[in-house]
């Protein structure tokens, strides 16, 4: 009730007929121009890597040493690497893995982190301590070394079960996602500790709102800011973490051209063929920016206080 009341006061437009919070959120989202553009951009990026191979029919692995290190041209819009492989085709092929790893790992970490953080933030008893202990435990498994250790230890087993790329994909998503939820959990918990004592929550409580309602309607929307930022950073971090594993020889097989991997391969040629590094770097950047603005838009859409 109080949520609606606050909204009515703050936003006269909400008095329109047929009002529902979700429709209102959508309306607010549409008002956030960069967010709309970003959503379109991200969809385009996904469409490009999914449908790309049907349009751009150049093989990602064909080697043509005569055509090595060429800059962008009609035959190779993104140029070629030193073996004469088409960078566009490689980015389309690798983009599927990079985007999937980035988004999947982000979703895992945001979902798990918010859930655990919210529970720990609301609980005043042993559950809170237990969940915090769990967070501490996962934090103290230092991320990259643990990742390396897990892949080092489980690589062969998963490879046997799911094939070299499938096994590594599952492992990378679970491990990167499963190892990045702790900051989200800590941030959410800290927000909850502070928000649950705020007047508007007290008011809701006094009006008889159940704890679930308090969380979902009142506390969570106000705690989402850091979560969305963390989610965005996680996408970039997951794409980079994947390439960091390649750096150490523990990620996907060396011939899998993920964005991070292409960037890694290009690094030694930075002064000879900058185009090689430019395109994968730009792709990661665009994905990150798009997801970031989508996040910003979502927050504005869900944030009842903000007047649009």
């Amino acid at each position: 009730m109080s949520f609606m009341a606050g909204l009515t006061l703050a936003s006269p437009s909400a008095e329109r007929r047929g009002y529902s919070p979700w429709r209102e959120a959508w309306r607010r989202y549409r008002r956030h121009r960069p967010a709309v553009v970003s959503a379109v951009l991200l969809l385009l990026l996904i469409a490009a890597v999914v449908l790309g191979p049907f349009i751009w029919r150049v093989s990602a692995s064909d080697i043509d040493v005569v055509a090595g290190m060429q800059g962008p041209s009609l035959a190779h819009p993104f140029g070629t690497d030193d073996l004469g492989q088409d960078i566009l085709a490689r980015m389309i092929y690798g983009g599927r893995i990079s985007l999937a790893v980035g988004l999947a790992a982000m979703l895992v970490s945001v979902f798990v982190g918010t859930l655990i953080g919210a529970l720990a933030g609301m609980s005043r008893g042993p559950l809170g301590y237990a969940l915090m202990w769990l967070t501490d435990l996962f934090l103290s498994l230092p991320q990259l070394p643990l990742l390396l250790m897990l892949i080092y230890l489980f690589r062969d087993g998963l490879k046997a079960a799911f094939g070299p790329e499938g096994g590594i994909f599952i492992l990378i998503v679970l491990v990167i996602g499963g190892l990045r939820w702790m900051p989200v959990a800590r941030l959410v918990r800290a927000q909850f500790l502070s928000l649950r004592e705020k007047e508007f929550v007290e008011a809701a409580r006094a009006l008889g709102a159940s704890p679930t309602r308090q969380v979902i309607r009142h506390i969570l929307p106000n705690a989402l800011g850091p979560v969305i930022i963390a989610g965005t950073i996680d996408v970039a971090a997951a794409i980079i973490a994947e390439s960091t594993l390649s750096f150490l020889g523990l990620g996907f097989p060396p011939d899998t051209p993920t964005w991070g991997r292409i960037l890694y391969d290009a690094k030694d040629f930075l002064d000879i063929g900058p185009h090689w590094a430019l395109f994968p770097g730009a792709a990661i950047f665009i994905a990150v920016v798009a997801i970031n603005f989508i996040g910003d838009g979502l927050r504005d859409a869900l944030d009842a206080r903000k007047v649009i």
């Binding site: 970039a236 980079i240 960091t244 890694y264 590094a277 950047f285 970031n292």
Partner: peptide, 15 residues
């Protein structure tokens, strides 16, 4: 900031 966390340290390091 976006550029900062989009680019891995192995890349910025070499740059």
């Amino acid at each position: 900031a976006f550029i900062g966390f989009s680019l891995p340290t192995f890349f910025t390091g070499i740059l």
